[in-house]
Amino acid sequence: MLGVEVAQVDLASIATNELHRFLLCLGRTSALVVASPAFGGGLVPAPARALLTVLLALVVYPVMPPAEPPASVLGYAGALLAEVAVGLALGLVTALVFAAVQLAGQLLDLVTGFGVSGVFDPVSSQSLPILGHFLYLLMWVLLLATEGHHVVIRALAESYRHVPPGGVGLAGGAPVLIGMAGWMFATGLALSLPLLAVLVAVMVALGLVSRAVPQLNVFITGLPIQVAVALVTLLVGLPALGGAMADLVHPMADALARLLEAMGP
């Protein structure tokens, strides 16, 4: 009887430790799902995201290295916050990729005149210009089509090899995140530059016409011309723009790998 009681106590202790480890894994996974637009963000209902979080945690839990959970409540809370910080850092990398696309769309909206109108974005809970929101949705579709979400999931699983539970080093990953922020501005400008050049040429042509024909009100006639040129140019150049946006998965994967290396021991 004594042996049976000891076995029951050991099983209960093992089950408790495994539950604590799974909760730590759930903390990292849930932070990634919340921060990364790759999993839909506000476009996906909250119950679906919660189910996705649990499923991802079950997938990556077997690769989580064994570790004894902290004995104290404060120590466990600190370990859980560290796991959340790792998930947020991984999600921030993917969010910066989408921010670069949104920045390109907002620059185009300012030149075409679409900046005065906007649509509600459930991800950021704010109003966004039309082209910025369109490119954001296009980037999401391209990310899923090129299996970019698999890159994010692999980075989550690989994070346990570089950053085991309790071994977070966010200070080491800060330069990578700062570099990605600069990359975001440069990429957003590069994506919008061809169409911006066409629209600037149209504005210069309208300015010359207004000097040649002062009776022509450029402010009234010029805006429809700019919108028409912008839409036609965007339609013609959409395959090339889509290809350039799909290629953003590669620098995202590289940034995730560099972030994990920097945060590792």
Rank of each mutant, 00 (worst) to 15 (best):
L137W: 07
P45F: 11
Y61M: 15
Y136D: 02
G115V: 03
L58C: 12
L110I: 08
A71P: 03
A50L: 14
Y61L: 15
A82W: 07
G75L: 09
E68R: 11
S127P: 07
A67V: 14
P70W: 15
L92V: 12
Y76Q: 12
P65V: 14
A48K: 08
V116L: 15
A82P: 07
L80V: 14
L138I: 09
L108M: 12
P45I: 11
L131A: 06
S72T: 14
L88Q: 04
P47E: 07
A46P: 13
F98C: 02
Q106N: 15
V123H: 10
D121E: 09
L108T: 03
G87I: 10
D109H: 02
S127L: 13
P129L: 00
T112H: 03
D109Q: 04
P45K: 09
A82L: 14
A100M: 05
L51F: 10
I130W: 02
L103Q: 05
V116S: 14
M64I: 12
P69S: 11
A46E: 15
Y61F: 15
A71G: 07
D121V: 07
A77H: 06
V59C: 13
S127C: 08
L131G: 01
A48P: 06
L96Q: 04
V101P: 00
L52K: 07
G113S: 10
V63E: 15
V86C: 15
L92N: 04
V101A: 00
A85S: 10
P66W: 15
A99R: 00
P47V: 09
V123P: 03
L107A: 03
T112I: 06
M139T: 03
L58M: 15
G87A: 10
A85H: 12
V123D: 08
G118M: 02
L137P: 02
L138A: 09
G115P: 03
A48Q: 08
T112C: 13
L58G: 08
P69W: 06
T112D: 05
T53A: 07
P47F: 06
A104G: 08
V84K: 02
S127I: 12
S125V: 07
G132Q: 00
Q126S: 14
A100V: 05
G87D: 07
G118K: 01
V59T: 15
V93M: 06
V84Y: 01
T53Y: 03
P69L: 14
M64N: 11
V60K: 06
A77E: 09
V123C: 10
L43M: 13
G91M: 04
A95R: 04
F114M: 05
V101I: 14
L90Q: 04
V84A: 03
L128N: 00
G91N: 04
P47Q: 12
E68Q: 09
I130Q: 01
S117Y: 11
F98H: 01
M139W: 04
A77K: 10
Y136T: 01
A104F: 02
Q102T: 08
L58R: 10
Y136P: 02
L55P: 06
V123I: 14
P69D: 08
